[in-house]
Nucleic acid binder design. Structure first.
Length: 367
DNA sequence: TATGCGTGGGT
DNA sequence: TACCCAAGCAT
């Protein structure tokens, strides 16, 4: 439509058409995706695989998800299989992927779908939204991708694309309603699933945070940020508070046969229900950083350096100590022998601690 | 609306 | 190096 200045802004439907043509040619091939040509032939994706991929992809990169997705779908091909699994096994399979409440909710959701919904996922946003671990984004994404419903799917990619397209001066998250409205304008009635994935692919491969490839962008003719040469200015965001530092000590006890003493973290809070080596409390204090006070039992604890791990909202510095011990596992602890250790539900921070104490031990899960 | 919740890769 | 960021959810 024409503007007062004489410059032309294409109608939303024109941009949508351009985006879908781009997607037909340049879509990413992903293990959980049914490509557009196959969709056009009338095939639909497996809702279980769509759901599983969407949960794994929450705040997580495609590269990190792929091997986990393959492992999960090989071991548990259907939602009924996953419902029949032990939660402990699911947590072990999830270890390293982060945000562990996702895995707990994944299992809850699978149980619910398998036992109360006859193994079938709801087909509406509202129905999906009521399931554990499924919020506004994920319900819309599954409804669109698995069931071709005209849902407004807005993730971080879409936020970036739309704030640039319209040169939105409102910072996130306040801009979200305007972003949703702008996406709704572009929704195609016939291909909502492809449209949602096309927007995300565009954000991931063309409309990137740094150095966007505007020369290859199907929306370039309509992009106000590009017109002003200010692509990287958007999206505007609220400033974040700085990260506090917490310190503590970790104690890696090794039995003569090489087993390592572990315990289970509380079921609530950080790394809930995951395994760990014994540690002191993690405090904000900077002094006593290498203190071996707080060891789980008396032993000849020797310093093995320190590790740093950055969580979302604080940075953790752990002094690591090692000792040989041949005792019964204390209440709530267990000895994990060398063959079992890498399969434990150990979050990355604890793998770092063990690696510092046992530098010759292999702890990597996959590659 | 604000905060807590992981991790690894990119720049 | 020190950030930034990624297909967010629960409370």
């Amino acid at each position: 439509m024409a503007t007062a200045t004489g410059t032309n802004t294409p109608a939303p439907a024109i941009l949508t058409c351009s985006l879908l043509e781009w997607y037909d040619r340049h879509h990413r091939s992903l293990p959980w995706r049914v490509p557009p040509a196959v969709i056009a032939a009338g095939e639909r994706p497996d809702p279980y695989r769509v759901w599983l991929s969407e949960i794994m992809l929450q705040q997580t990169t495609v590269g990190a998800v792929k091997s986990y997705f393959d492992a999960f779908t090989s071991r548990w091909p259907t939602v009924v299989d996953l419902a029949a699994a032990d939660l402990d096994d699911v947590m072990k399979a999830w270890a390293g992927l982060g945000y562990y409440s996702r895995a707990r909710n994944l299992k809850k959701c699978a149980d619910l779908v398998a036992h109360e919904l006859d193994g079938r996922f709801p087909e509406t946003e509202e129905g999906l939204r009521s399931l554990p671990g499924i919020g506004d984004y994920t319900s819309a994404a599954i409804a669109a991708i698995a069931f071709n419903r005209p849902a407004v799917v807005v993730d971080g990619n879409v936020e970036r694309v739309m704030t640039r397209l319209h040169a939105m001066e409102t910072p996130l998250p306040a801009a979200k309603p305007a972003i949703r409205a702008a996406v709704r304008e572009m929704l195609p009635e016939d291909r909502p699933g492809d449209f949602a994935q096309a927007m995300m692919d565009l954000g991931a491969t063309i409309c990137t945070p740094k150095n966007p490839a505007c020369g290859l962008c199907p929306l370039q003719v309509g992009c106000l940020a590009f017109r002003e040469g200010k692509q990287e200015r958007y999206p505007l965001k609220q400033a974040k508070p700085e990260k506090p530092v917490r310190v503590g000590a970790a104690f890696v006890a090794e039995r003569p046969d090489g087993a390592v003493l572990l315990r289970k973290r509380p079921m609530k809070g950080l790394l809930a229900g995951m395994a760990e080596v014994p540690t002191t409390d993690w405090t904000a204090r900077q002094d006593g950083i290498s203190s071996r006070d707080g060891a789980p039992f008396p032993a000849d604890w020797k310093p093995r350096g320190a590790i740093t791990h950055v969580f979302t909202h604080f940075e953790l510095r752990l002094s690591v100590f090692h000792a040989l011990a041949d005792i019964e596992a204390p209440e709530g602890h267990w000895w994990s022998d060398p063959a079992s250790l890498s399969g434990e539900a150990l979050p990355t921070v604890m793998r770092k601690a063990v690696a510092a104490a046992l530098p010759h031990r292999r702890l990597t899960r996959r590659r």
